[in-house]
């Protein structure tokens, strides 16, 4: 278990995932004048998902800055601001809209340090509400972790708990390089213990959420909770599942995953992004190349999003991404040598 690095005096209490993010941003705004928030309707509206909430009342419209509906320009302004001394946190209303800003994120933010031979720094944070399950259909439900994870120069994280949502955001703010945070929309209302005060959850470290002997499930974001629910059911059937919360897509925590697969000999990757060429492909390949290979006692399985846009109909929408029973079935098949 990788505990977050904490200040010794921190206390813990229940907050929602959205509240935890807001608390992190409030702490950052209060601590550092260079921190600004930018995004569409993050001011008096409080953000499309009410994540920024009342921050504009506390810090004013210059530091909690509503942008026009200009994803490319807005992201570029955030990059330029970061390049010249501010520490912007840029909120996309939906991660889908980041496709409009790919130029600034991929060509500019990610590469600026490298293109300039280390002479420049772009400490910007992009927050992206992500994932399906809200009935918002094909253009408001996508999971782009693998897209951004494919870009050297970016760091990409996916918090699955309120505690990590805060800790990873503060770690992203402290990071001198651009960080993309995928926040799962279905998790915003999820409550959990959140330490008080400033703490960071290290970027690039996975968390073992449940230990087990028979099978390793590497999951991210909401899939962590589905994997944990499946693990409960499977435990009653005598299948002992280890669940790893990936937390960081780039960099990826090789050590934790390899150590787990060495122990269990079986691996299922569960992720919401489209299955093909996704995060699971990377983890599978990483295991195949690692010394965990010799410990594999079954094929690696990937459960990912369907090869289709996210549909509107609720049953179709559920069918388009892995659900708890899908994870249970895959685990049973793997352990019972049906695959």
């Amino acid at each position: 278990m990788n505990a977050p690095t904490r200040h010794p005096e921190v206390q813990s209490r229940e907050l929602s995932y959205a509240e935890a993010i807001r608390e992190a941003m409030g702490l950052a705004l209060a601590r550092d004048e260079r921190v600004i928030l930018m995004g569409e309707d993050i001011g008096v509206y409080g953000g499309a998902f009410q994540v920024t909430g009342d921050l504009v009342e506390r810090f004013g419209p210059d530091r909690v800055r509503d942008t026009p509906i200009s994803e490319l320009g807005g992201a570029g302004v955030a990059v330029g601001a970061a390049l010249t001394g501010l520490r912007p946190i840029f909120e996309f209303q939906f991660s889908d809209f980041a496709t409009l800003a790919m130029e600034q994120i991929v060509n500019q933010a990610a590469k600026m340090r490298y293109m300039l031979g280390g002479e420049a720094s772009v400490p910007v944070v992009f927050r992206m509400p992500s994932g399906s399950g809200t009935g918002a259909a094909a253009q408001h439900s996508q999971s782009f972790e693998a897209w951004f994870g494919h870009v050297p120069g970016l760091k990409v994280v996916q918090p699955s708990t309120p505690e990590d949502a805060k800790g990873l955001l503060l770690a992203a703010l402290e990071d001198p390089d651009p960080v993309v945070i995928f926040e799962h929309k279905l998790l915003y209302k999820m409550k959990g213990h959140v330490p008080e005060g400033w703490y960071t959850t290290p970027i690039g470290k996975a968390a073992v959420r449940r230990t087990g002997r028979d099978l390793t499930i590497v999951a991210s974001a909401i899939m962590v909770h589905r994997a944990l629910a499946a693990a409960e059911t499977l435990a009653a059937e005598g299948i002992d599942v280890e669940v790893i919360d990936l937390r960081s897509v780039r960099p990826i925590d090789r050590e934790t995953i390899i150590a787990s697969v060495r122990k269990t000999g079986r691996l299922i990757c569960v992720y919401e992004g489209v299955r093909t060429l996704g995060v699971g492909a990377e983890i599978s390949a990483m295991i195949a190349e690692s010394d965990a290979f010799d410990y594999l006692d079954a094929p690696i399985l990937r459960l990912g999003g369907a090869e289709a846009p996210i549909p509107y109909n609720p049953d179709l929408e559920k069918a388009a991404v892995p659900q708890t029973p899908d994870i249970e079935t895959a685990a049973r098949r793997l352990v019972r040598k049906e695959v």
Binding site: G76, V77, V79, G80, A81, L83, T84, L86
Partner: peptide, 17 residues
Amino acid sequence: GGGIPIAVGAALTAKQL
């Protein structure tokens, strides 16, 4: 056109700070 929003961001820094 890549530098145009970046220039605006640099100007935002100047104004903000």
